[in-house]
């Protein structure tokens, strides 16, 4: 039988605690804590809707055990920006029509942010590869590519990428 354990998770810069069994995924734990901006599309690592940043790197939270994320920096889409101060990716996704139903959007923006942190000026090919684990059924990815490149340009200008 599983034994529950209380763990500390640092989500979007705030300490939170969750009491969970060992098999609980990070996806379930985050949603259980109210971070429902992390979406569930398959629970198998096939769709990327559940992506979050763990120490700056995009991971599928459905494939990550919550306990393994203890003590690490977790960022969900909401952690990237606020309505008053949106992240350039959030701004460009909204303005350029890159979110249709919006269900893939949290994962898409997280995957894009992870890419841009490593590669502030991705080529078209690099961008496609980086987003190839994130499925979208609405946009054909076309406006998503446009939005990421537009945000990348803004971020290069404002020096937001390191």
């Amino acid at each position: 039988m599983s034994t529950e354990k209380t763990i500390n998770l640092r989500v979007n810069g705030r300490e939170e605690t969750a009491t969970i069994p060992p098999h609980r995924t990070l996806l379930e734990a985050l949603r259980g804590l109210g971070h429902v901006d992390v979406k569930c599309g398959c629970e198998k690592g096939d769709c990327g809707a559940c992506a979050v940043l763990v120490d700056g790197e995009a991971v599928d939270s459905c494939l990550t055990l919550a306990q393994s994320a203890e003590g690490r920096e977790i960022t969900t889409l909401q952690g990237l920006g606020t309505p008053e101060a949106p992240h350039p990716l959030q701004q460009s996704f909204a303005e350029l029509g890159a979110a249709q139903c919006g269900y893939c959007t949290p994962g898409m923006i997280i995957a894009s942010e992870s890419l841009l942190r490593k590669n502030p000026a991705p080529s078209d090919e690099e961008l496609r590869i980086a987003l190839s684990g994130n499925l979208c059924r609405c946009t054909g990815y076309v406006k998503i590519f446009e939005a990421v490149q537009a945000a990348a340009a803004v971020m290069r200008q404002t020096g937001e990428t390191k």
Binding site: Q91, F93, A99
Partner: peptide, 21 residues
């Protein structure tokens, strides 16, 4: 025109609730 859709900011900010939320 290609105006920003009324539903777009909520989605991009991760603030739009879906039925499962």
């Amino acid at each position: 025109k290609s105006l920003t859709r009324t539903d777009a900011p909520g989605k991009a900010m991760g603030r739009t609730p879906y039925a499962g939320d």
